[in-house]
Nucleic acid binder design. Sequence first.
DNA 1: GCCTCCGTTTACGCGAACGTCAAGAAGAGT
DNA 2: ACTCTTCTTGACGTTCGCGTAAACGGAGGC
Lengths: 145, 145
Amino acid sequence: MGRTYSIRQLTKEMGVTSRTLRHYEDEGLLTPERQGLARIYSQRDRARLQLILRGRRVGFSLAEIREILDLYNSEDHGVAQFQHSRKKFAERIVALEAQRKDIDESIAELKLALARADNFLAEHHAEQNPPRVKMTGYSVMPAAE
Amino acid sequence: MGRTYSIRQLTKEMGVTSRTLRHYEDEGLLTPERQGLARIYSQRDRARLQLILRGRRVGFSLAEIREILDLYNSEDHGVAQFQHSRKKFAERIVALEAQRKDIDESIAELKLALARADNFLAEHHAEQNPPRVKMTGYSVMPAAE
DNA sequence: GCCTCCGTTTACGCGAACGTCAAGAAGAGT
DNA sequence: ACTCTTCTTGACGTTCGCGTAAACGGAGGC
């Protein structure tokens, strides 16, 4: 339960540098305890770090991530605060769903490009790759609009 | 068919500044023709720009986008080139699918947070928002692991 | 002729997210 | 006591993706 982590342990586990963790601390995203000078990271710090890193992977800025984290464990749990949080969460969800659409479209396009490459290779290397439907005259650029 | 666009038209249509278009040109992502000094963008330029902007939205760097665009309309259409392209496309697809997973998880978490906010608001404002299942003691931070 | 757009190039600036020294503290092992 | 290793705090450097002047070039309208 009360498991703690040194900075080195956390960097190895999460695949980031210690500089990154200190930077997140400077930015107010993490607030590990201290034992003398050394930082002691709690489970909670670890969980927050996971959220931070995933946020980063989906394109959030550190400022945006901090805002979300602040909403999560705000001290003020009044009605106004929850209304504000609700709105912010809803906005983020909408943005993420739009981004998901972009990703799906990108994947679809790349799969098309991959299929074209496979087809070319099947035609020019017929006994190695299983041959597929013959395609000719496909455009190099995806169609506009 | 042979429709062309001025820089201003394109910026308005795509919601970017002219500086951005010139920057993309500096980076080799766009190569509009010239009429004297003025840039003349073709349909193909427009299509490429759409790809660039979508790539940006999903988090690609301009260098990565350039690489993909280069794969799309490489002049060398030999077997080796197609094999290389195929591999690159496959890598991108894998990365995008991982990113999609991150996004789905983020959405799920935000929806949970939103539901908690709704619940709180329902409890403390019972006649305005339709009441929901009573929840108590929910944690402020999502579970670790 | 002059104004007003729309366009151009050159080039310095900037915020974000760290990287990369430099210099030292603090404990663990021999 | 000495060396390792891991940690610390500055603080300057770097890359990316443009923003932001500054200074100038045509083309069209009055």
